[in-house]
């Protein structure tokens, strides 16, 4: 590993550590936030118990697959909001001209920006995801796959939000669009893909990438399919690449000072 990468990593780790320290100032709030998020997620299981009382499968998923779906969604969403929470609120920084501080630092701007905050309840999401996966009785190979999909899911969530958020370099009000779309994505990601058909299914695989973040991974975990695995990996790389490209394109615009609204 080159020293530059090592140094960057050191800054990132310190950043995450300091983020957590900030939230731990009030320990009670910190712990209740996490534990209530776990309870919160767990309460939704009631819904699935009921639905599986009515039918053997829901949208082609067994109860175990629903647990995997929830596990992956919660864990990826959680991890992305622990490490890269700012990728989910980028428009605010752009509009208020708060990127300046990162631009005078000799580190990668994108990484510095997205690691600069944390959502504490996300720790609860991550833990809940892992607990659910543990209930799924995965074999060693599945665990390795699940870990891989946790990484790709985290990247897909982060990159998708970053992509939308970066549009705020060009357009106003992107914060609302970003927020709503990401929340919508999470909602879809907690239901089986079998209930969606036709156009909506296509949209949910390729435009709002729920399919790539969790549905394909669950299918691969349930029954291994190399093609699907490669699709997920390829799509993740593509999405990550384009979101980074759009961010830097936007950053150039930021540096040219011709943003709408923002100018100091």
């Amino acid at each position: 590993m080159s020293t530059a990468v090592k140094n960057q990593l050191r800054v990132c780790l310190l950043s995450v550590k300091y983020n957590i320290m900030r939230e731990m100032v009030n320990k009670v709030t910190f712990l209740t936030n996490i534990s209530f998020m776990i309870l919160n997620n767990a309460s939704i299981l009631v819904q699935w118990f009921i639905l599986f009382r009515l039918r053997e499968d829901v949208g082609g998923y067994t109860f175990r697959e629903i647990m995997m779906l929830w596990g992956l969604t919660a864990a990826s969403y959680g991890l992305s909001h622990i490490l890269f929470a700012r990728a989910f609120s980028l428009p605010e920084l752009v509009i208020k001209g708060k990127l300046d501080a990162y631009l005078v630092q000799p580190k990668n701007v994108l990484i510095s920006v997205i690691t600069s905050s944390i959502r504490i309840s996300a720790i609860g999401d991550l833990l809940y995801g892992i607990i659910l996966m543990a209930f799924c009785r995965l074999g060693l190979r599945e665990w390795i796959l699940a870990a891989l999909f946790l990484v790709t899911g985290t990247v897909v969530f982060t990159a998708f939000s970053l992509l939308l958020g970066s549009l705020s370099f060009w357009f106003l009000r992107m914060d609302i669009l970003e927020n709503q779309t990401v929340m919508g994505m999470v909602s879809f990601a907690t239901y089986p893909d079998g209930i969606f058909q036709g156009l909506s299914r296509f949209l949910l695989y390729f435009i709002i990438p729920v399919g790539m973040a969790v549905w394909h991974p669950v299918h691969v975990l349930a029954r291994f399919d190399a093609g699907m695995l490669l699709t997920v990996l390829g799509y993740t790389a593509l999405l990550a690449g384009s979101s980074v490209a759009v961010f830097y394109r936007g950053l150039k615009r930021y540096a040219s000072g011709n943003l709408m609204g923002a100018r100091t």
Binding site: N7, L14, S15, Y18, M21, R22, A101, V104, Q105
Partner: peptide, 30 residues
Amino acid sequence: AYGIGTVFGQKEQLWTHLTPYDNFRFFGAI
């Protein structure tokens, strides 16, 4: 950036919930 320093009187660059010491360590790493 390695060769210059910046202080913007009206914009903070420090993490306000941390001690100056922790902040300095962070900037050291940067």
